[in-house]
């Protein structure tokens, strides 16, 4: 099985994010490999271990390759970085177009991506890529079984009222959600090797991308300004003793917050 995994290095949930100007953010230098992408890598590696083949990790980022190194240290065979300053300011749709240009004439059985990137939180790239490649996709899967001879996958996806069990012909794209697996922690020796591993670099010109299809000029939804989250009033601690505090809480919820 030939599997591509889309990966992205994103700010750690604990990184502080500051609004520098209306349209500019300052992000603390604390990055990690997108949580859901590691789940995608793990899923790919398990399929490879079962059926053989090759796992390639792929990122569109001209600065950070740590997610690719994470992939290699976990066991991916190859890493590709699509890197070009012209891509700066691309939104998830533009990222999907770039990935389409790279993947459209590559052979593959499966593309795996994360449910969403923990920075823009959009959950677009994988799905939009599937559309552009005209292959089926299933979003946010928590179960995956592949039958390579039938070129078919059985997947489980979570929906509001339960779990959907689906079949899907391959090649296909799935975005991965927590619950699918627990990503392995790479061995020290593999991390050391990954730090030195060769990473294949591709630029957008070689992909024949039209300049107006990527970068900030391609945006269909533009940021007017960044805002801090709505501020909550300071907490009201109910200091009275039990069980008085419970009575007071209920009264406050009814009379002050008016939520009951």
């Amino acid at each position: 099985m030939d599997i591509f995994v889309l990966v992205k290095q994103v700010p750690d949930p604990e990184a502080t994010i500051r609004i520098k100007t209306d349209t500019e953010l300052e992000i603390e230098n604390k990055y990690f490999t997108n949580f859901f992408d590691e789940i995608a890598i793990e899923a790919a590696l398990r399929l490879k271990e079962k059926f053989g083949g090759k796992v390639t990790v792929l990122t569109v980022d001209h600065r950070r390759v740590d997610a690719l190194r994470r992939g290699i240290s976990m066991g991916a065979d190859e890493a590709v970085q699509i890197a070009d300053p012209a891509l700066e300011g691309s939104d998830p749709f533009a990222i999907a177009r770039i990935l389409t240009a790279y993947l459209k004439d590559k052979p593959f059985d499966l593309i795996l991506a994360g449910r969403q990137a923990m920075d823009d939180d959009s959950g677009i790239v994988g799905i939009a890529l599937a559309e552009a490649l005209n292959i089926p996709h299933v979003h946010s899967i928590i179960g995956l079984e592949v039958d390579p001879s039938k070129k078919e996958a059985k997947v489980i996806r979570e929906v509001e009222n339960g779990k959907e069990h689906l079949t899907c012909p391959l090649p296909a794209l799935f975005t991965c959600q927590k619950g699918l697996n627990t990503p392995r922690i790479p061995l020290v020796m593999n991390v050391m090797k990954a730090m030195k591993a060769q990473i294949k670099k591709v630029d957008s010109a070689s992909l024949g991308m039209e300049p107006n299809k990527v970068g900030s000029s391609s945006l269909q939804v533009k940021v007017l300004r960044y805002l801090p989250p709505p501020k909550r009033p300071p907490v009201k601690m109910i200091k009275e003793d039990y069980p008085e505090n419970v009575k007071i809480l209920v009264r406050l919820l009814r009379e002050e917050a008016k939520v009951l």
């Binding site: 949930p13 920075d119 939180d121 939804v221 940021v223 960044y226 805002l227």
Partner: peptide, 19 residues
């Protein structure tokens, strides 16, 4: 249409406008 949506899990909100 102008919208607001949370980014970075809600640490920042973006006010965005459609083209």
């Amino acid at each position: 249409l102008t919208i607001k949506r949370p980014l970075f899990g809600g640490k920042v909100f973006a006010e965005m406008v459609f083209s």
